[in-house]
């Protein structure tokens, strides 16, 4: 049984990472207005929320299976950052990223309760969290040195960076327009 949980731990962690990347790509495409005219904005937003929620669910599943697989981690290790004696840095990054995801997802539902700037700042926690997840997976992941994993990470990074670049360039462009019009 613990073997099954162990393989599920590895696969669910990777799938959670893919879902996070997909949510980020979706968010950048939507917020950069790069989605075209044919698809309604509501579709992008709804899918973005769905992907974020699923990523969180798969991350919880990843944690539960890791605990069930008897890897030597206690509940405290996966709840309190910096406590784990094994892979302390990697586990801490994973735990912090998980909390960042929790905060991001659960502040999205009552978004209207927050000022836009505050909510936006909270929402952008996802970006450092994603980097932390990448480091966590690279350091701890059993498969992280395999060719297919490296290829997958390269593809995901490229897929995230492209809309991120579009978004950043769009922001710079709009700031410049605002500046010159002022």
């Amino acid at each position: 049984m613990s073997d099954v949980l162990w393989f599920l731990t590895r696969s669910s962690g990777i799938v959670a990472m893919i879902l996070i990347a997909a949510a980020i790509i979706n968010g950048f495409i939507y917020s950069g207005r790069e989605g075209g005219q044919r698809i309604r904005p509501e579709w992008w937003v709804d899918l973005h929320r769905g992907l974020g929620g699923y990523a969180l669910i798969f991350t919880v599943f990843h944690l539960l299976t890791a605990y069930g697989a008897d890897l030597g981690y206690g509940v405290i290790d996966i709840i309190i950052p910096g406590v784990s004696k094994q892979w302390t840095t990697a586990v801490t990054l994973g735990v912090l990223a998980f909390y960042a995801m929790l905060i991001t997802v659960f502040t999205t539902w009552p978004k209207r309760r927050f000022r836009s700037r505050i909510w936006h700042a909270i929402h952008l926690l996802t970006l450092p969290a994603t980097i932390a997840i990448g480091v966590h997976g690279w350091q701890m992941g059993t498969d992280s040195r395999t060719g297919w994993y490296i290829a997958l990470m390269a593809i995901l990074t490229g897929l995230v960076m492209y809309p991120a670049g579009l978004r950043i360039s769009g922001l710079i462009r709009s700031r410049l327009v605002t500046f010159w019009n002022a």
């Binding site: 709804d46 769905g50 992907l51 699923y54």
Partner: peptide
């Protein structure tokens, strides 16, 4: 709005 896509994902 993206029920189908969410289910597919």
């Amino acid at each position: 709005a993206a029920k189908g896509s969410r289910s597919a994902a």
